[in-house]
Design a protein around this nucleic acid. Sequence first.
DNA 1: TCGAAGCGATAAGATAATCTGATGATAAAT
DNA 2: ATTTATCATCAGATTATCTTATCGCTTCGA
Lengths: 310, 310
Amino acid sequence: MINPTLRQLRYFDALARHGHFGRAAEACSISQPALSMQIKEMEEGLGGTLLERSARQVTLTRLGEELIERVRDILRSVDELGDFARASRDRFAGRLRIGMIPTVAPYLLPRIIGDLTRMHPELDIQVREALTSKLIQELSEGRLDTAIVALPVSEASLTEVALFSEDFLLVRPLEDEGTPVPSREMLREMRLLLLEEGHCFRDQALSFCKMHSSPRELLDASSLSTLVQMVSAGVGVTLIPEMAVQVETRSAAVSVARFRNPQPSRTIGMVWRKTSPLARQLTQISEVVCLSAGKPRGKQTAPPARNHRS
Amino acid sequence: MINPTLRQLRYFDALARHGHFGRAAEACSISQPALSMQIKEMEEGLGGTLLERSARQVTLTRLGEELIERVRDILRSVDELGDFARASRDRFAGRLRIGMIPTVAPYLLPRIIGDLTRMHPELDIQVREALTSKLIQELSEGRLDTAIVALPVSEASLTEVALFSEDFLLVRPLEDEGTPVPSREMLREMRLLLLEEGHCFRDQALSFCKMHSSPRELLDASSLSTLVQMVSAGVGVTLIPEMAVQVETRSAAVSVARFRNPQPSRTIGMVWRKTSPLARQLTQISEVVCLSAGKPRGKQTAPPARNHRS
DNA sequence: TCGAAGCGATAAGATAATCTGATGATAAAT
DNA sequence: ATTTATCATCAGATTATCTTATCGCTTCGA
């Protein structure tokens, strides 16, 4: 009964993730036979089969299933040792892996990346853009240090702090300029263009209109940029977060208008694992991000909505 | 920033335990330079000093202090992977590390060791005798699988099951034979011999007599055997658990008597970590031990007390 | 039905990690 | 001042791990 090595645990984790020896080996930067051998030794050491090698795929056995979560806990803990060491020695140095949702990243990133590296030159910032659900998953698995998403996230294992809230503005064809801003009831009768499934901003927009099912047409866009282009082409109207206005309407012939009460809006915040050894630093970083966003925490002082054309 | 290897964590743990490179290396079955090197590499990998090497001793730095508990958690988790694998494959095989208190081990061990190995020949039973506090500590650290102690233990992280309860009998010089059994009030006036500090049986005996401070004399014995010998030599009287009567009074000229109401007694039970992967097996083993002890669970059917002489 | 392609296992030799034994350096104890 | 205890360092030996080449099996398309 030989205990597994950390190396074997890492390989096992990768293999469980990829379900494929070749790709897992590549992810570990080793050759496929090396991985096969280590997995085999781990199985022999434990005295049981971890994976079922069927012809077309590799799946976990019951034993593998029972162990994989524990293995991941172990790997996460080991990775965190380094974080703890760093935290107790040098307050702001080393890798910082930030995740962001796609409806925030392009607009917020340029502002904060400069500020952060200026204030903490030792910080090696790595950014990852993905949908909320994926970010939360990677965060929990210890593959991200923090994520910037729309609140609330409501995961008991995560700490969340609000950064700022941003209103949603109406984007409509240029010829609508000057006509009254529709109420949300009217909006429901118009052709409202949305992001595809999975984007939290889609749900936030739907929620504002009190529409809970998807609208009539299947014209979901994969980015705010596309949405605005579609409006400009006269396909319909859409909502975009205030922060995106300047970038996205610079090169599109559209009219932007602010809603009267109620103002649709959402709160953007930062989340991290409660157990993260970087907690203290992350709190400070959240303050920097807050300032970089150009708004006092939790409030908003938006410039008045204006018209734009190409 | 290189992550530590499991090997380094093991060495670090041993070093933290022993506070001495040479002895820690011996405990790891490696040479002292090998340990020095690995520790150094771990420190370099983490980017901080873990230990302070003063001339006469090795102590943990603040960082080492912060990490050692996490490291031990990791090592325990890794060790348990094997236990899980075994548990899910072969119900009763492999190492089983049992701890027992000294006032139970010599009398219970011979009975159960045979039964257990007969019923589970694949079981490699390792027994460790120590005081309750040490057993509980080792159990929590994952260095024991289970322990047999007097209940209650009241540790939230441990499961406890009662095995049997045993009365305490009075042991007095042979010439007292036939005289009335003293009440516990009378006992307080007699010269009551006890085990040394730390034995739970000492506290149980004191508690029966409603004495909470230690008695007048400092004549604490280190084993029940010694106690009985002292009584036989006329130094005083003592209590011993029923289970020890046969062995300990076989070669001593003493009289053994049972108390009237209230009967002093204690409950012996088995404890293990709630998270132990061997939980199911341990429950079954506790039943075997129960039977081996020769009494139905939770009850007692003792043979009547008799006199013994050398 | 047959050959091609994909995939994991195996083997042999190369490389890297780790260990041992000898020795050095430092500080406390005699 | 000398001895002793203790951890660090070095060179060479040993062990663990990796790579490349290749095998055998299964699936898929012609």
